[in-house]
Design a binder for these strands. Sequence first.
DNA 1: ATGTCC
Length: 489
Amino acid sequence: MTKDDVKEFGDIRLERVREHVWEMPREGDMRVPARVLASEELLEQIRQDKTLEQLRNATHLPGMTKYAICMPDGHQGYGFPVGGVGATDTEEGCISPGSVGYDINCGVRMMRTNLTYDELKGNEEELVEALFANIPSGLGGGGIVESDVDTVDQVLSRGVDWALEHGHAVEADLAHCEDEGFRPDADPDAVSQKAKDRGKNQLGSLGSGNHFLEVQRVTDVFREDVATEFGLEEDQIVVLIHCGSRGLGHQVCTDYLRRIEKEHGDLLESLPDKELAAAPAGSDLAEEYYGAMCAAINFAWVNRQLIMHRTRRVFERVFGRDWEEMEMDLLYDVAHNIAKKEVHDVGGEERELFVHRKGATRAFPAGRPELPSAYRDVGQPIIIPGSMGAGSYVLRGGEHSLDLTFGSTAHGAGRTMSRTQAKNDYWGETVQEELRDQQKIYVKAQSGATIAEEAPGVYKDVDEVVRVSDELGIGDKVVRTFPVCNIKG
DNA sequence: ATGTCC
């Protein structure tokens, strides 16, 4: 090992295993080593906040298997880093709400169209206004569906099938969603009344922060054969939707963190950070949290489904054609804040694990039984949103993902500065005008502050994040897109 | 992320 193969950041030591793979050796009470998957450039950003310390803390969780992993877009989060993957044994391990995240099943879906950028050009203002007027966004209530608690119960237990029954989906939408838009382990009774009350008027709403809906055009195709399988080609218009489970998921996380802290204080005492609070596998609370989390996952899938279906109607009005004629079909929907029971090979043994992916995307390669038939032979589509000035990527689950990351890759570009800092450095209206005048990107938001907080300059280089994913073979580049219209909270 | 503290 040469000097360049070792990095010392305070008391944290990283050793280069090979290109883009850094290992934090096991020491003290760490149960396993940790790994950071990053280029030198991204590692230099990752080391700036508490990410590495949080990653080390995560290795203390009971039942942690192989290693705790930080993705190339990793940054500091609540307890467990955003961009973190941790797999714990479902019998001897634990489940940790902070390692899933507050926004349960925050995720991304992409819808294709058969429109080209040339056909859309000139209609950007009308389209962005129509989308903004018809798709609820921002903090607080107001959704596409104004429901009651009974309806919320149906959504929680049935997922996208509920949307299908009520005319907000077609069969093909279910077939092109992670888990077919339905987690059977959902237990609506484990979701508090308060959480349901928060969710009942938020079904079909974007929310705020980094959530958005973006019309994009495909600018680059890297793997022609896979792009063809995904129905993607250069100059095609696509729609990307990024949002989660709103107040409902947030309340589920809050409720269970509080209960777990109280009822499993002994486990809490053994952890280096109280924010990692976890329920031991097999305990009543672990079961309840898993059921509630799965219910919140279903809620988020319905949320994205309602927004997508409404988007079809908006396009119909703006372009004067039926959505079916514009072939507005769902490519795929991926979750990036989730914990799931999955079977993985660990040292030659098949084991069932809770795979916590917090700000990390499932990236299963061809052949995994969980994949829908459309993608079983090619690998799952992965959608990686970048900033509103940079564009996004579609990847394909890479052949090394099961070995390296429990079948996971990055989830986005990752912030480089706080929201407070961003508001000091940027002015929303200026950002909006520059995007329009210099890049022909039309942005409309509820609040100028949100535009400032989400200015392209506050994000890491999505190209660099994706390059690392591609070179490691965990998620392979398929196409790149560029923003056309963006609406947000 | 989030009715940005019950």
